[in-house]
Design a protein around this nucleic acid. Structure first.
Length: 272
DNA sequence: CCAGCAGCCTGTGCGC
DNA sequence: TGCGCACAGGCTGCTG
């Protein structure tokens, strides 16, 4: 199953590695094999020297010295691989040719991911990035978090995954955080009391940090630019564990339901 | 304002 | 063994 998608820890891992591999390198040329990958259908990508890599939520930004930046969203199955073996492959849609014969491959089985070129000065106001909510570890303070929850009656899990409310959390980490905090995914956000919200806040930072520590979660879709797999999937406590006994109460079986169209896993006893 | 859902896409895993 | 089909899911855009 290709069920995992790059979320904050995965994209941060990608960002850190790309920074190391790409900074200072020249983009000699770009081969576009699937034009639909380019969000605006740009034909000529603007070469230049790579001066840095940034991350906004789940978006990777590669900054060039010619005042252009390359925005990349991997969505569900996108990969950025530096110098991989057996590449390009069937799912390689864009190839960045770098100096020294090096290459950066953009692969995406489901073709949901996109690449967009904008002026570096316009990155912050680009439509997707401008709408992103506060970033965990940066501007998402506990106060801000409580304020976000207090303003809506939508299920807490939907709110956590809403990129305009908080950026970077996807289905895996939302499920894991709610299990750790013993909160039912369907509870309206506004109903969480101060203590519970505070607990959830610290648990969110904890799971994201943990994901990053293990280099992200790999199923088959996600791999790091180095070609390595993440290891976080070996540490899932609730995600994908439907039918298995809850690790905490040792009584209930993990249930699976759908919330906002997404697979939702929880312990019916622990998460009231 | 919000909720719900189709659409995008393709490998997987089920039923028959 | 193989065919057909439902399913997964981040995000957009449409409708109610």
């Amino acid at each position: 199953m290709f069920k995992n998608m790059p979320e904050l820890p995965e994209v941060e891992t990608i960002k850190i590695q790309l920074e190391k591999f790409l900074t200072g390198r020249e983009i000699i040329g770009v081969e576009v094999r699937n034009r639909k990958t380019l969000a605006d259908g740009e034909e000529n990508l603007p070469g230049g020297k790579i001066i840095g890599v940034r991350r906004f939520g789940k978006v990777v930004v590669i900054d060039l010295d010619n005042d252009y930046s390359v925005l990349i969203h991997l969505k569900l199955t996108g990969q950025l691989v530096f110098q991989g073996p057996n590449l390009p492959g069937k799912h390689t849609h864009v190839i960045f040719d770098l100096d020294g014969g090096k290459k950066l491959y953009f692969n995406d089985l489901r073709k949901f991911g996109w690449i967009k070129i904008v002026k570096s000065g316009d990155v912050a106001t680009e439509s997707f990035i401008a709408k992103l909510g506060p970033e965990p570890f940066k501007d998402l303070t506990l106060e801000k978090f409580k304020e976000i929850l207090s303003k809506t009656n939508r299920p807490i899990k939907i709110v956590l995954m809403d990129q305009t409310k908080i950026s970077g959390i996807g289905n895996i980490y939302a499920n894991e955080a709610l299990w750790l905090a013993k909160i039912n995914p369907c509870v309206p956000a506004r109903q969480l009391d101060g203590k519970t919200a505070r607990h959830l806040y610290s648990v969110i930072l904890e799971v994201l940090k943990d994901g990053l520590k293990w280099g992200g979660a790999s199923d088959q879709a996600y791999i790091q630019p180095s070609g390595e797999e993440g290891k976080y999937q070996e540490h899932f406590l609730v995600y994908g564990r439907q039918g298995q006994i809850c690790q905490r109460c040792k009584k209930a079986k993990i249930a699976k339901t759908k919330l906002g169209g997404r697979g939702t896993y929880f312990c019916p006893i622990c998460q009231k």
